[in-house]
Write a protein that binds this DNA or RNA. Structure first.
Lengths: 205, 205
DNA sequence: TGTACATCAGTGAACGCGCGTTCACTGATGTAC
DNA sequence: TGTACATCAGTGAACGCGCGTTCACTGATGTAC
């Protein structure tokens, strides 16, 4: 069905986006090891060597994938921030959106834990660390807002609370992944969230 | 330094253990992609082809690594169960030992999230799932004991509580990993644990 | 609007490399007498 | 205790494969006049 060969010539600007998008989809669906130049080329309808008209090599494609990933996480946070006037509901929304994000592909854990990606690439490790720190800082900022509004206990470090929120999602994501979608991640989150909410909320949350 | 070549002939029984152990160490230290027959052979002081005297191939070595991993997690649980008469302290000990386990090598997340390991290997995926389920069931069993002893809220699903306990460790482990050991995982756990403990404990925990 | 030329996206053959695996061999270890 | 032989752990050369990358090429697209 899909085009085996270029249907038409496209400008480098367009192709660069197509390629980065295709690479992210491959990582999400089939893992980092499946991310080959040939696989990317096939997905955008080019021959492997054609990729080099638009990217210098695999490393540059990976950098573009990280850019895309960061953008996704940023917009996830922005959407959650705008989701409700209540801070605790905003955190709940982060959890909901994060679960949905994980369902779309296990990009994040793969990129984090594939040592091969980072060995001899300190700048890439730094990049991944920065993306993660940024995401965590975004969650922590919501927590801080909640403290300022008197909705969240003031004696908590915002970062600790942010990690607890992620702690609701991560184990569920792991089980969901290993069970090939059988594990009821949303159900777990529904049960676990109230406990975490009450643990960080101020007074009669 | 290390032997480049076999210092002596050893029985297959001994070699099989050496090889499985070496493979686990490689995965823990350098990741799954670094797990090559040549790397394993080098570590036990054999030539690559020598490995085939003791294992049928790479798949069998991976199976042995999973066996080792399962044994580690089982003994982690056994030690935590025996660590204290107080159930909540036992859970705290699971967290402590799990953090220590993660520090020794990121074997678990790598094995879980490397899709290549599982694609076209349904029986291996099932095996990983079983190891994880067993671990989770072990934590849930401690929770159940706590409920029977009246220390843990009876209205909680034990599995939900167990996942919350793991949720204290996982985000910390991830940050610790991506920061190359800079992030203070133990410190986070010290701050986060009391919140989770109070969330699941009965009465004035 | 029409022609001539430069640009550049896409092609296909070829490369070097590391990988898992095989195979005929060597020679030390263990056993039978 | 000593010799003869079978067993089997370890070796090194060779293989086929998929990978990332290169390079000379083709031919469509865009621009200058």
């Amino acid at each position: 069905m899909g085009a085996q060969v270029a249907e038409e010539k496209l400008s480098t600007g367009v192709r660069r986006e197509q390629i980065a998008q295709a690479a992210l989809e491959i990582v999400a669906a089939d893992g980092l090891t499946a991310l080959s130049i040939a696989a990317v080329a096939g997905r955008v309808g080019l021959v492997p060597s054609g990729i080099y008209r638009h990217y210098r090599g695999k490393d540059e494609i990976l950098a573009a994938v990280l850019d895309l990933l960061e953008r996704r996480l940023r917009s996830l946070l922005a959407e959650a921030r705008a989701s409700s006037p209540d801070v605790l509901e905003r955190l709940r929304d982060v959890v909901r959106r994060h679960v949905r994000f994980v369902r779309e592909g296990r990009t994040l854990p793969r990129i984090i834990f594939e040592e091969d990606l980072h060995r001899d690439h300190p700048e890439r490790r730094e990049r991944v660390r920065g993306i993660l720190s940024g995401y965590l800082a975004g969650v922590a900022a919501i927590v801080r807002d909640g403290q300022a509004a008197g909705r969240i206990r003031g004696d908590l470090e915002p970062e600790t609370a942010a990690l607890l929120v992620l702690g609701v999602v991560m184990p569920a994501a792991m089980l969901w992944h290993v069970s090939e979608g059988e594990f009821d991640a949303e159900g777990h989150v529904d049960r676990a969230w109230p406990l975490i909410r009450d643990a960080i909320a101020k007074g009669g949350g």
